[in-house]
């Protein structure tokens, strides 16, 4: 049920790269499910396996970032498919907020609808934040949605969030369903007037 979300604080986890699409966040084979439960284990699975094969470590496999709550990404994060499985997998892994340069709109909308704040910073700040977290994985990242600031290791960065989503988090109305249901009488009135629902009369 909806609740007020003002600040998120916790350790950070970087995922570097522009245009990280939802197929990479959660490969399609894990969409063969009728519930989102358990998806967290498969977040970034193919990227993780690929890096492992090259003897490298994806941040989601890196013990230094275990238990992190704030994901820091770069531009056009979550592009591609509309699958809510992607933010659901990230959230079920343990992430409670995302900081990135930009998002695909559907991904961002999904995040808001789930109560997962996803704010924007400049490209330079996203990279600076990633470097800080990589250098000190224990540093606490604090995202304040009220004043739109990210602070970590004594540094502060401005961030952006649309006024609508910001209000939704601050007043706990990010789950729009309740309000939409309240509007049902007006919805019915609208339906009674739409040309294509009324024989174009």
């Amino acid at each position: 049920m909806p609740s007020i979300i003002k600040t998120i604080s916790g350790r950070g986890i970087p995922v570097r790269g522009n245009d990280i699409d939802t197929d990479r966040i959660i490969p399609a084979r894990y969409l063969r499910c009728v519930t989102f439960d358990g998806l967290g284990a498969y977040a970034f699975e193919d990227d993780r396996a690929q890096l492992k094969a090259q003897g490298k470590l994806h941040s989601f496999d890196d013990a230094r970032f275990a238990g992190a709550k704030v994901l820091v990404a770069n531009a056009n994060f979550g592009c591609g498919s509309s699958r809510e499985h992607a933010p659901q997998a990230i959230a079920r892994w343990g992430v409670q907020a995302i900081i990135a340069v930009s998002y695909s709109e559907i991904f961002h909308g999904n995040c808001v609808a789930m109560g997962l704040p996803a704010v924007r910073v400049s490209q330079a700040d996203s990279e600076a934040l990633q470097s800080i977290i990589e250098a000190d994985p224990k540093a606490e990242v604090i995202l304040d949605i009220e004043v739109l600031k990210v602070s970590v290791a004594g540094k502060t960065f401005a961030c952006q969030l649309g006024d609508g989503p910001r209000k939704q988090f601050l007043n706990g109305s990010w789950d729009a369903l309740g309000e939409l249901v309240e509007g049902l009488p007006q919805v019915k009135a609208k339906a009674a007037k739409l040309p294509y629902l009324n024989a174009f009369g």
Partner: peptide, 11 residues
């Protein structure tokens, strides 16, 4: 809506 977004009918 209170969030500033619109409630949009889907045809």
């Amino acid at each position: 809506l209170p969030s500033g977004q619109s409630q949009l009918f889907i045809g």
